[in-house]
Each structure stands twice: as C-alpha cells, then as structure tokens.
Amino acid sequence: MLEKTGVPTPEQVKRAAPTEDRLKKGPVAVVECFQSIPCDPCQYACNQGAIKEFVDINDVPIIDHEECNGCGICISQCPGLAIFVIDATYSEDKGLVKVPHEYTPLPEKGEVVTGLDMAGNEACDAEVVKVQSAKSLDRTPVVWLAVPHDCLMKVRGFRRKGGAE
C-alpha cells in the first residue's frame, strides 16, 4: 500500500507509535520511515541516544521511545521529513503534533488551520500553537499544532484556511 500510494498502512503507523503509557509521560518523537534507504542523519541528530546507532547506512531507524525526551531536534534534520513529535499531555482535550513544514507563507501563532492526514485528507481543525523557524532549523520550520487526542496519530500536515498550503 505504502509503495503504491505513498500512504503508510495503519499497521505501519501503529508500529511506529509510542505506547499509551509513554504518551502519558510527555512529548515523544515518532519516526515514520519504513523503507531501507541509504540515509543516516537522524542518528546523529539525537542527543539522547534514543535513535539507535546504525550498523549499516541502509538501516531503518529504530527509536527507543523511553529514552526520547521529545526535544524535537531530529524533526528538521530528517531529509525525508518523516519525524514528528507528539505531546499527548498538552491539555485535557488536546494534544500537540509538531510537524516539519517547508511551505510559505508560514502560519501565524493562534491561527486555526485544517489538519491533514497522511493521505492529505482533512482530519480536523488544528490551532497553531507555535512556529519554530530558527536559523538552526536550516529552512525546515516546525509548526506545533493542537489537535484533539484522537487525531494525534493522524495529523501530519496542514492547510491554511483559504486554500494556501
């Protein structure tokens, strides 16, 4: 399915997901990279040692969610834009999805945008909580989206209301 459509299967998404227990402890990275390709920057991005050292550059990354502190440094270091941070502890009814976003113009803090799922379909409304665009992110800004808890493992991008990506 993934290799026909570009959309990961529910099984793949589930496999990449942190446990409920881990989600309750605070922000954590999810690595949705399912194909063996020669690429290794993520292992060097992680200061916590949560992304395990590669034996071969073609290894698929393995993340230990227990060792990940959800800092999010890896998000803008992944050339495939396949790493996200999920924070289920944001509020009673909402969690955060932190997504890499290389489209301009960037949204404003407080703006309500349309959260998109992995197939580009509308999933829910999302509030932009923060836009990180420091120079160290090297032109891959990270946008923090507040979404309902049941959308945390769905929303991976957004569209600004009024048509712009």
């Binding site: 459509t5 949705e32 399912f34 050339p79 495939g80 396949a82 998109l116 197939a119």
Partner: peptide
C-alpha cells in the same frame, strides 16, 4: 510501474500535501 520508484518518505511527504500518486 505498479510501485513508486523513489524514496517512500518523499512520496509520503507529497501525499500528505494532497497530491495523488497513481501507480
């Protein structure tokens, strides 16, 4: 071809922008 030839992370990135990929 019946499968996407490029890296699937690229494909996923484009899919979530709403662009269909028709193999």
């Amino acid at each position: 071809a019946p499968k996407i030839g490029g890296y699937l992370v690229h494909a996923s990135k484009i899919r979530r922008a709403g662009i269909p990929i028709l193999t």
